[in-house]
Design a protein around this nucleic acid. Structure first.
Length: 596
RNA sequence: CGGGGAGUGGCUCAGCCUGGUAGAGCACCUGGUUCGGGACCAGGGGGUCGGAGGUUCAAAUCCUCUCUCCCCGACCA
């Protein structure tokens, strides 16, 4: 029996001054956590109890598909050299030396250690598939820890790794994780979306993120309220309404028109009496190509190369999509003289004509012309003439000028139509927190680290891998972000530190005290996690504390005990019902979610 | 790393400009009265004013350096 009077639950009336987001303020106020340094937190009794429950759910579900390991956080340099990530991780990796001067690091993730085990132990396709997971502390020297528990330098992660003999095997392992993650987050009571994610620099083929919408989030996601469509900004698309192209003028060849002083898309469209949708927006960028391999700290020789983007007049460019289109190279807007060098024209009249564009991305030395997919197939567009006070009609991509490549560069905006077939609803854009990530790794680690098994034909092959992560504390943070008000927060019973708090409103009244005690005993006997607030405090203090600390149900034991009645208050709605003391256990058993 | 802000008792903050040897509310301890939404009265304990150096008869206050934390940006397998 947990008695509040004997526990350490240091609740605060006021939030610490340096807390900004709701979950940070409330978790500190509720006595769950205390800060030790930037991005470093101690978990106290209630906080630890909750993370233990979350880990319990994660274990139960993961044990259905995999096996739990426990790997060291302290890693020798060698395995990270083998994968190439000793350098690639840069300053984000905590590094240290042992007494002999040997390099060590604190693990940010465990592909290397798991793959090391695999390469030493796995020999045959008959041993596959394998799914190995652990729940363990990760260390990342974030450039900027922030928002309480949302971005920290030390955190708990459930990380899993799959080893399969072939791609269909990986697909199956990946799907198992997808399903398991849904069960885990459902049981944790979270509302989440699964989005297609950028495969990133890890060389994987497919990747999805489990996101929870919250204003405190750092990532922007696009989602549809009606259907399940969801994507991050760099992947999101939307359905474009058909646009009526202009008719060719004259002989259909590019035709210069005098547009004195008309520089912006809107000005030109109005001046010529056309829609911005029939205009081409020309964006002039410079891209920096580093000679030195990415991740190394020695600055190599860098060259710049012009990248010109053509968008539909009313569209905006998304920088993440541009970054993808140029394979992660750094880009910046051109400076005035760079624009003149390439276009021989002032800004405001830029267009694709008269420039020798690169035929493909490898056609180095020449400027790159990237055309947004929204312009593919369009005809007779209007763009700048590369000549002051002139624009050009009859521009048709692929005919009057030749793009280096077409690419998806367009930023989705809120209210755009959902791209799902037959959906038709409007898209929304929200910030979100990533609570899980599943990833088809492919052969990157098995190859670089030399894991090999014999296949059915006795041929040596590298196993194909997947990796799958869940941020334990982020589940708590997301739950608090989703369920709070100015008085505190409420957690789903499955992850709350206690399911019920029994408040003895006046411990000096013997019948109230003993009834509260009996009810708490009874509920605990029926398998509920119960906290008995037996403190010698005024009722108001106890109610305020109960509202603060995240426990979903409260039983008020007060004057009505003489009538054999107590109140049960549901924290989320504040609704209160009178329940007969004799029926209290049944009352809660009826509420108990089936998932337990 | 660039820009901004802040470090004064456990928490929230005042005092700093204009130097004179540290305050309030909450929390804590003792006694009493209270007891259904963060009570009241009386008494009490607790502070290297982030750190170092300097100016001065005298520094929380002025000057220099430094550390830490927060926010925006950059960054984020």
């Amino acid at each position: 029996m947990h008695r509040w009077s004997q526990l350490f639950i240091p609740t605060l009336r006021e939030a610490p001054a340096d807390a900004e987001v709701a979950s940070h303020k409330l978790l500190v106020r509720a006595g769950y956590i205390r800060q030790l340094g930037a991005g470093i937190y101690s978990f106290l009794f209630l906080g630890n109890r909750t993370t233990q429950k979350i880990m319990g759910i994660v274990r139960q579900e993961m044990d259905k598909i995999g096996q739990e390991f426990y790997l060291p956080a302290l890693n020798p340099r060698e395995i990270w050299e083998a994968s190439g990530r000793w350098a690639a991780m840069g300053d984000n990796m905590f590094r240290l030396k042992d007494r002999k001067g040997a390099d060590l690091c604190l693990g940010m993730t465990h592909e290397e250690v798991m793959t090391d085990i695999a390469r030493k132990e796995l020999r045959s396709y008959k041993q596959l598939p394998q799914i190995w997971y652990q729940i363990q502390t990760k260390f990342r020297d974030e450039p900027r820890p922030k928002s309480g528990l949302l971005r920290v330098r030390q955190f708990l992660m459930k990380d899993a790794y799959s080893f399969d003999i072939d791609a269909p095997g990986l697909d199956a392992s990946y799907q198992k994780h997808y399903d398991t993650y849904c069960r885990i987050f459902d049981r944790c009571g979270l509302k989440y979306r699964v989005i297609d994610a950028h495969s990133g620099a890890m060389g994987g083929s497919q990747s999805q993120e489990f996101m929870v919408r919250t204003p405190a989030g750092e990532d922007q996601i696009v989602s549809c309220e009606k259907c399940n469509y969801a994507a991050n900004m760099e992947k999101a698309t939307s359905r474009l309404a058909p646009v009526e192209d202009l008719k060719a003028e004259g002989d259909g060849q590019p035709l210069e028109v005098h547009t004195p002083g008309q520089k912006t898309i809107e000005d030109v469209a109005r001046f010529l009496g056309v829609s911005p949708k029939n205009k081409i927006k020309t964006l002039a960028m410079m891209m920096t190509e580093e000679d030195a391999p990415i991740g190394t700290k020695t600055p190599g020789k860098s060259r710049t190369r012009a990248v010109v983007l053509l968008m539909r007049g009313d569209h905006q460019m998304n920088e993440a999509k541009l970054s993808t289109a140029v394979a992660g190279k750094q880009t910046r807007p051109m400076q005035e003289e760079e624009i003149r060098d390439l276009f021989h024209s002032p800004a405001g009249y830029l267009g694709p004509l008269g420039i020798d564009w690169a035929k493909d991305m490898k056609d180095s030395g020449k400027p790159i012309l990237l055309v947004d997919e929204a312009l593919e197939g369009r005809v007779n567009l209007i763009g700048g003439a590369n000549k002051e006070d002139y624009h050009v009609k009859n521009l048709t991509p692929g005919k009057t000028f030749h793009p280096t490549a077409y690419a998806d560069l367009r930023a989705v905006t809120a209210g755009d139509e959902c791209p799902s077939v037959g959906c038709g609803a409007a898209l929304r854009i929200d910030t979100a927190v990533e609570i899980g990530h599943i990833f088809k790794l492919g052969y990157k680690y098995s190859q670089s680290m030399g894991a090999r098994v014999l296949d059915r034909n006795g041929k040596e092959v590298a196993p194909i891998m997947g990796s799958y992560g869940i941020g334990i504390e982020r589940i708590l943070t997301a739950a608090v972000e989703q369920n709070n008000d100015e008085n505190g927060f409420w957690l789903p019973p499955s992850i709350a530190p206690f399911e019920v708090v029994v408040v003895s409103t006046n411990p000096k009244d013997e019948s109230i005290r003993s009834t509260a005690e009996d009810i708490a005993q009874q509920l605990e006997g029926s398998g509920f996690d119960v906290l008995l607030d037996d403190r010698d405090e005024r009722p108001g203090v106890k109610f305020k504390d109960a509202d603060l600390v995240g426990i979903p149900f409260r039983v008020n034991v007060g004057k009505k005990v003489t009538e054999g009645i107590v109140e049960v208050v549901r924290r989320s709605t504040r609704e209160s019902v009178d329940v007969k003391i004799s029926a209290i256990t049944e009352y809660f058993q009826d509420l108990r979610p089936a998932a337990r």
